[in-house]
Computed example of a mutant assay.
Amino acid sequence: MQNKKYASQGHYVAPLEETPVAAIDKLDESQKARSTWADAWESMRRRPTFWISAVLIFIIAVVALFPGLFTSVAPNSNCLLANSNGSPEAGHPFGFTRQGCDVYSRVLFGTQASVTVGLLATALVTLVGIVIGSLAGFYGGFLDALVSRVGDIFFAIPTVLGAIVLMSVLPDRTPITVALVLAIFAWPQVARIMRGAVLSAKNSDYVMASIALGVSKFKILLRHVIPNAIAPVIVIATVSLGTFIVAESTLSFLGIGLPPSVMSWGNDIGQARTSVRTSPQTLLYPAAALSLTVLSFLMLGDVVRDALDPKARARR
């Protein structure tokens, strides 16, 4: 009787177009899937810090490439002892050095050497770190153990201290030489970061699928693992550029970096320390240029880190 009762009852099924299930489950195929870099750019462009640092870095790059556009005074000409430690005047807004040279002109032309060393050192460290870290993390075994032990040896030597020792015995001191010396002692940090990122990426599903399809390991490393593991390295490279500029200035300040004939902020700061009490402007302006440049790259690195690392952004 009970079954007959339920059988006599009608069943109501709502029309499909009246239910929201189809709209919820339907994928929006009109928009293309965005990559990690597209998401990072979308995040960075909304940050005022990114635009401030980008504008400052652009100005610094233009000054480094074309310093003659901003002054008509040659940095090493018209150096008169009569203007020694002179105060600012028309055409010389920053005053004069102890040798009577224009401080404003030297600050502008010194940008080239300091930024060049920072860029070269960052490029070398990033390239070496990516190659060594990728091979060690992906292939493992004896290569990984060897790279780790060699990296530990270099980690035990402070970068600036190692550069001081090595630069003191080198006869030729050029921006390329300084960049190479800094890269020799700074590559393990990037290599270790890249190794860890590769270890995480090589166990991903797309890597396993590529192996199942018979793709060679080296092609998998180049096409899939490195592009998906390089984000942390880009962050550390952005921050390291400012660090290498400071390292070059430190070496030049100590007299074992770039020779005095090469204009750099470190050389100018080192030469100004003897007259800082009577003429503080000779130290103030190159130090301010150095600080502003380093701050710009640190600000950019902070924004890039937040954009490429959602966990870091969530912690803020």
Results as ranks from 00 to 15, higher is better:
I60K: 03
N203S: 13
G118N: 03
S210G: 12
V225M: 09
P259N: 08
S264A: 08
I59Y: 07
I256S: 00
L221T: 07
H224Y: 08
V103T: 13
S249T: 00
S114L: 05
V107Y: 12
L124M: 14
I52H: 06
A212Y: 10
T243V: 13
V73A: 11
A201G: 13
Q189L: 11
C101P: 04
T19Q: 14
A23N: 14
S210C: 08
S204L: 06
L254V: 00
L81Q: 07
G255K: 02
F142E: 09
I164K: 01
I157V: 14
Q189T: 10
S264N: 13
L241N: 03
T282H: 11
V225F: 05
T250K: 00
T36H: 04
N228H: 15
K202Q: 14
L284R: 09
L119T: 04
V233C: 07
A82Y: 01
A209M: 08
A113W: 03
D152N: 07
A40N: 14
T282A: 15
S87H: 14
A314F: 03
E42I: 13
I52D: 13
N203W: 11
F218A: 13
H92N: 13
Q189P: 03
P171F: 06
F244P: 04
A186P: 07
T174G: 00
D144W: 03
V13P: 01
K26C: 04
A82T: 06
L65R: 00
T126N: 02
F94A: 10
Y285S: 07
N228F: 06
A145C: 03
S72E: 14
L119E: 06
I226W: 06
L170N: 05
T122S: 09
M167Q: 14
R98G: 09
L80Y: 08
V239Q: 12
A40Q: 10
V181W: 02
M44L: 15
S210W: 06
V147N: 09
P175S: 07
S114N: 14
W187S: 08
L161H: 04
L222A: 11
L284F: 15
I256L: 00
A145T: 14
V215S: 15
V21H: 12
T243R: 09
D172P: 02
V115K: 10
S105G: 12
N228P: 08
V160P: 00
R277E: 13
P158W: 02
R47V: 09
R313D: 09
P232C: 04
Q99L: 13
N78Q: 14
A231P: 02
H224T: 08
W41M: 14
A307G: 05
L161A: 10
T36A: 15
S291E: 03
T126G: 01
G68N: 13
S279P: 05
R313P: 05
S291Y: 06
Y12L: 11
L143G: 07
G270M: 01
